[in-house]
Structure formats: structure tokens, C-alpha cells
Write a protein that binds this DNA or RNA. Sequence first.
DNA 1: CGGTGTGAAGTGTTTCACAGCT
DNA 2: AGCTGTGAAACACTTCACACCG
Lengths: 276, 276
Amino acid sequence: MATGRTHRPATRSRGIPEATVARLPLYLRALTALSERSVPTVSSEELAAAAGVNSAKLRKDFSYLGSYGTRGVGYDVEYLVYQISRELGLTQDWPVVIVGIGNLGAALANYGGFASRGFRVAALIDADPNMAGTPVAGMPVQHTDELEKIIDDNGVSIGVISTPAGAAQQVCDRLVAAGITSILNFAPTVLSVPDGVDVRKVDLSIELQILAFHEQRKAGEEAGAEAVVADAVAEAAAADAPVAESDAEAAAPPAARAETTDRKGPDGDVPAVMPA
Amino acid sequence: MATGRTHRPATRSRGIPEATVARLPLYLRALTALSERSVPTVSSEELAAAAGVNSAKLRKDFSYLGSYGTRGVGYDVEYLVYQISRELGLTQDWPVVIVGIGNLGAALANYGGFASRGFRVAALIDADPNMAGTPVAGMPVQHTDELEKIIDDNGVSIGVISTPAGAAQQVCDRLVAAGITSILNFAPTVLSVPDGVDVRKVDLSIELQILAFHEQRKAGEEAGAEAVVADAVAEAAAADAPVAESDAEAAAPPAARAETTDRKGPDGDVPAVMPA
DNA sequence: CGGTGTGAAGTGTTTCACAGCT
DNA sequence: AGCTGTGAAACACTTCACACCG
């Protein structure tokens, strides 16, 4: 392996739990909406409902930030918006570069949610020379050759990778070498980065796969045969006992099972790989 | 609030922990890559490295699926690919509809990662009548009016929402009414759905905000002033003692007060809100 | 040996429930 | 009277470390 990636000692950041940090943006969004409606205060119950969490969790989360509420009353909306923004570091301006201006990159460049939260798209970068100069979201696409210079000139510390999987690691290496320390990766690949560099990934197909898993369970359950079916199969297979049952559409990959090795597996509808 | 949403008893899915389910797609991707290179077997160590997790976790994860490895040898790649695919429900075909064909919707429609994993885009739907018929990713966009019919005709159970935030809940309600039970939401809003409907969300700006948080911490630390600063403030505030210190850029909203790190500082004062 | 599978220990997160402030 | 803030209990997930087996 290259460097120690996966390494996420989770920014033991002095105190705020990761799980809480991940929810702060959610609270902030809800609060912002309230603020726009000029609502002066909210109770943990109301805000929790708006953010889609339960109130105990919300109060516990806020307790890590300090005591920003008033007992018997609730929280002051404006004050909280400010405190959370500050905690998240959104009171400062964060220039970001987006590398890989395909469909997704363009979507990101046009995404209003960035600009509205202290993030400023400093540059759009693509390896295709033909794209250079083409305006996307009112901004000319620049060539990869400029990458280092752009990052340096703008003091960029956050990079977004929306290139095809094949180019991601390479782009990542250049970003890191150029001084970037936080990366948001949309390419379906595991990136290796040195310690000290933070990587978060968003994988569209993974989310769908997780949904499929639950969807499958639901189907199984309502079909009368408790979700136990798939289970029994798995266990039988594990136990190596040839599944005698007939009620499962699972278990025997054409020629898989006991003898393991050999064929490509299922009918052919098994994945087929291929990254974005 | 409407129904009991947020409700995620986490599909106590007869055993497999949510955290494990979320990693299965990762393993699957790594395995698929190995499979293409015709690698017959992998050790937990190797596969873990490829998937970006540690080997103990991987072995524990696999242990929930059954005993699919061979001691002293490792795992059979093809066999594991099949087992994981089956567990995730990818051996069957999942038709999905994408509602909201803007930049992001188009990007999703073109995303190869879907088709390659058993997901089939059954239809692209948009509310703009002018888009109807326009081909996106080789497929004509259909009007929202057709939504119910499309879902019914194709037996769709998974929907992707990539509309603006304002339209999301409404679209969601229609999807649910039409029989959809799993939703992948890209709109920056909390969706209310009845029990039994699964929602996963992907919020681009939230990911960036989390990165900003960590980035801020890094900056603070290397700036000599340990991250303890913010802490002292929080604690002082909690203790309710009016922060007498001078070294904190926190505590006072509207007319913020003493600045330490001084960085961009709250010159503009309290944020300024405004959502996506 | 080498590497899986897994109890047991360790760590992190959520939920409960209520004391304490306004 | 109402709602926050928070210990403590419950639960979930991760890591350890080693027995066991091919």
C-alpha cells in the first residue's frame, strides 16, 4: 500500500463527536430556513423535527458546542446560526476547485448550495484541451496543466474530484502535492492520501445498492416468508450443507457453492463491472 | 409534521449491521476489479487494502454473511462477488426513475455506475413541459403527469429525486403514493415519508461543510494555538460565566467580539444565512 | 505456517429520564 | 410550567488477539 489512507482517527477534534459534526449542517439548514421566516426562537423539539432527528439527540449535540439555549424557552435562532456556522468554519471563505467537468462536474459547478455556505468555486479544471475556455456555470474551464498554479494563487485547500475513476488517483496526487488537504471524491475509487489529508467520498451507486438491500428485505418479508429465507440460505451455504429447500431464489450460483472456484458465476447478469 | 419519518429502526434486518451493509458495495467494487484481472483468491488483508478498510473489520463483516473463506488461503473472488451481490439484491433487476432532470439529474442519467450494478433507469421525469421528449442519455424525458403510470407500468420501487428543494416533498409524496418504497434524495431537504419507506440522502453541500470543519481544525492546530481555544470558549459559555477571557472569537453574536485566530473574521457579522 | 472466524474488550453513539434553570 | 443540559444506561460498531483449521 502506499500511504496510510483509510486512516481516519476521526479528528479526535478535542471533543465534538464525528456523528455530531455530520449533523451540524443539517441543523444549520433548518435554522437558516427559520431565520428567513424571521422566527426568533425554537425549541429542541421543533428544530429536531425540522432537521429530521429526535430532540434528545439534538440537545446532546448542542451540548457539545456549549449551552446556547434558554431553559423553559428554547434556542435563539440567529445566535445558533452564528454559533454553528462558526463551529463549522463557515464564517470564513473557502475557495474550492472542481476537477473533472463532465456531467457531474458541471452539475456541481452550478449547484447553488456551495456558494451559499461560504464555499466559492475558484476554478473548474478539466484534462480535455477542447474544454479549455468553454464557460460552465459562467466560468471558463481551465486545463489541468494550470492546476498547481490555480491552487497556489487562490490559496485553495479543498478540492472536489469528479473525474472518471481511472483518473482520480492521479488527480488526487497532484492536488495533494499542490497543497490541498481536504478532498471530496465523487469518483468510484478508493483514494490513497498521506496522513493529514482528509477525504470524504460520495458514491451514487453505493447509495442505490444500500437501498436495494433494504428493498429486497422488504419484499422478502411481505412475501410471507420472513426475511429469514435469505438467512437460512446463507447459513446452509456456510454450513456447507447443500440447500435442500426450494423456496429461495438464491443459494446456487450456477456452479458455485461447495466447489468454489470456476466460472464467472451467475447467469451473466452479475455486475459486469465498469466504473463511471 | 406528518408521518413518522426519521424512523429508522435500521431494518434490524435479521442480523447484518447497517455499517456492514454500507460497506458491502465497497467490497463488491474491489472484488469486481480483481475479478476482471482474473485474480482467483484474495486474503482479507489484500481485499481490505483495496477497499480502504482494515482487515479485522472486513473479516467481521464477512462473518455476518457466513463463512465464505478458506483458512490459510483467503477468499475465492468469484464466489464472494456472487454472495455479496445476492446479499445486496443485485442479482435482480431494479428499475429506477429519476425525477428532476436538471444538471444533476442528467449527470445521474449518464452515470455508468448504475447500469453496471443491476439498476436500470426506467424513466427520466421532469416537470418542465419544454423538456418532454428531449433526449437525455439517449432517453426521452417524460412529463411529471406520467409519473404514476410509468411507475406502475415498470414496477418501479426505487426513485431518485434530483429536483430543486422546493419541489422535493411534493414529488416524494407522489412517488410514495404511486408505490415507491425506496428513495434516494439529492434535494437539500428533509423528506417526510410514511413508515416502511426508506430514504437515503446525498447532500453535496453537507459533505463540504464537514470537510470545512476538519480543515478549520487543522489550520487552527498548526497555527500554534491548539484547538483548545474554541474549547475554552465553549466551556466558559457552558459554565455560564460570561467569558471574561479575551482570547476567543466566539460568544458574542451580532457584534462579535475579540478575535484570536483573527482569520477572515466575522466582519460581515452574523453570517447572513440564506440556503441553497 | 498462514489466514480465517470470532469471543471479548474497547470505543463511539443514541436514548432515557430527570435535575435544574428561567 | 416548560424546556434545556446532562449523567448514566443501552446499544452499535470497531479493534484486539488468538483458537482453529486447511
